[in-house]
Design a protein around this nucleic acid. Structure first.
Lengths: 316, 316
DNA sequence: GTTCCGCATGAATCGATAG
DNA sequence: ACTATCGATTCATGCGGAA
């Protein structure tokens, strides 16, 4: 990274091309205003999210979905944050997240505590408590059940197949579009409904207009139910080189749940850019930030690939 | 409850009968020794677990599995512990658990935080931190996915379908018999989740009282793999007056995982006695403690019923 | 003897209403 | 302003009676 500059990537229509603009960021209030004129939507920015976000205005982001480097992970990029220092490393960034997030917005934090000396470390618990002190509401904890967790065998524990999806908000009331993530009803009523309709037909022949038929009408067309706070998703790898933190399904679910078309989604630890890809696919705007130039380029390539594919599809 | 006495229930062969013995408990060291001679194995004791356990010797329990009253729940029995006071209510009891647990033993705590003012309360997080201060190791957090969670719809959250199963130990090295909970690979678990009749068959087998050995024999020839730290189990809500906090499968799994035949399992918030029933079925010894006389009687009745059924089966 | 369906039942939570 | 109570919302499951 060169001094006082960051690199901004953006996707263009041209296949396999991207522009790199050098933009001064770390500026005082006057110049900051000028920068604000810069459209940060649909950009991938290389830099430290804590610094980059200082150039983003208050209350301008609708949703933050991210999976920060866990303690002692992504050492080459983030230097491997020590578990004991995790909270103090994270909180200045969380303060920026708080500032840029709209009052009606949500922050989804994918995280899981490491095992240290045979014990689960407590930095995630401490992080939640500290977030509250900094004004965040710990609204909910969703559970990601990783259906295909990596194998492994230890004498004192099994494979770790779940991760936390902490849901923080700024207010008790926030935007939530529950209908957007309704799911087909369970196998239970599928089979029952199937059988029910057969019975219905049978009875319909013998007796028309009874109250029974009315009962059926309540079920017919009601294929969808609201999900719970447990998400069952398999992990996926974008390619052999760079494994994604989570499958595209995951940010997709929260993007549909907490935003509408045109809203802006931020991933401050963008990595291979799964959040941005999901956002773009769902016609939302994205802002991805990552320290690593390699990851930024990978992300922009993925976004370009997807745009191209969608373009081809349109022309078909 | 009368002064200085507790009520001890034990199962006998005679159908639908139980003995009630009055035993002085809250005594000093000399008399305590006398009490220790009393066999606490396979007993249901009515009283406050914090006091009752003072009569149990150090390092005498192999496994503790329990689901304490959550904050503001089970008000009629426990008076409804306020969320803010939960940790200070719980810790003196946890100290006794620590004392009576063998160094190689495990403590499984089923708990979940309430929503208070639209936010998840932090008393569970604080409890974990406090447990560590009192010497416990937070070894693992298992996840109970409740497939049939209570319904409901709110503007800011979905149905809560998971609970924590906190695994505390006294040492880094503890007893764990992983082979005892191995499961058939792949398709079996899929069919089990989807095929209801398959589940029913398994359930029936376990209810009859032959334990799980019989089922395992059905799996011979299939490849067994170790499970993960996510448990998929439905709550039992059969039409009775007293519903169990968790399904029998749940303590069963941990009993097989952390104990051997003849070991002693403690549930200090015994409730309807699901833990003890599972322990007895698996030929372990149990000690159940509960404040409520009604629950104690219910538990002993369940244990007697099971004994009777197992006896009938033997005679067949 | 099976299979199938109606129904009750949750360790819930929110918002409105009442004291 | 703060607490207490009540109705509305909603779905997977097991049980019991029916086909």
């Amino acid at each position: 990274m060169s001094d006082n500059t960051i690199t901004v990537y953006s996707v263009h229509e041209t296949k396999m091309q991207y522009n790199i603009e050098q933009i001064p960021l770390f500026v005082e209030s006057q110049q900051k205003k000028a920068f604000v004129a810069f459209d940060f939507a649909n950009r991938i920015i290389q830099g430290d999210c804590e610094e980059v976000l200082k150039a983003i205005p208050d209350n301008s982001i609708d949703l933050i979905v991210t999976s920060p480097p866990y303690a002692d992970q992504r050492i080459s990029t983030y230097g491997g944050i020590k578990p004991d220092q995790y909270v103090s490393w994270f909180m200045p960034k969380a303060d920026q997240f708080f500032r840029v997030l709209k009052p009606t917005g949500s922050f989804i934090l994918n995280i899981k505590e490491r095992v240290v000396n045979g014990e689960r470390h407590t930095y995630v618990l401490e992080l939640i408590l500290e977030m509250k002190k900094h004004g965040w509401l710990w609204t909910e904890e969703y559970m990601w059940h990783k259906k295909n967790s990596p194998p492994g065998k230890w004498p004192n524990r099994f494979r770790d197949s779940w991760e936390r999806l902490l849901h923080f908000t700024k207010q008790k009331k926030f935007n939530m579009y529950q209908d957007a993530v309704m799911v087909p009803v369970g196998d239970w009523s599928k089979t029952r409904l199937k059988n029910l309709s057969e019975t219905d037909k049978r009875r319909d022949n013998s007796r028309v207009g009874s109250g029974f038929g009315k009962n059926i009408s309540n079920w017919v067309g009601r294929d969808l139910v609201y999900p719970s706070n447990v998400l069952h998703m398999a992990t996926e790898c974008y390619n052999q080189q760079h494994s994604a933190a989570f499958p595209e399904e995951l940010p997709e679910w929260f993007i549909k749940l907490f935003t509408q078309t045109g809203d802006v989604i931020l991933d401050p630890f963008n990595g291979s850019g799964t959040t941005c890809v999901a956002a773009d696919r769902l016609d939302r705007k994205y802002l991805g930030i990552d320290l690593s130039e390699e990851y930024c380029k990978l992300a922009i390539n993925r976004l370009q690939d997807m745009r191209n594919k969608r373009g081809e599809k349109k022309n078909e």
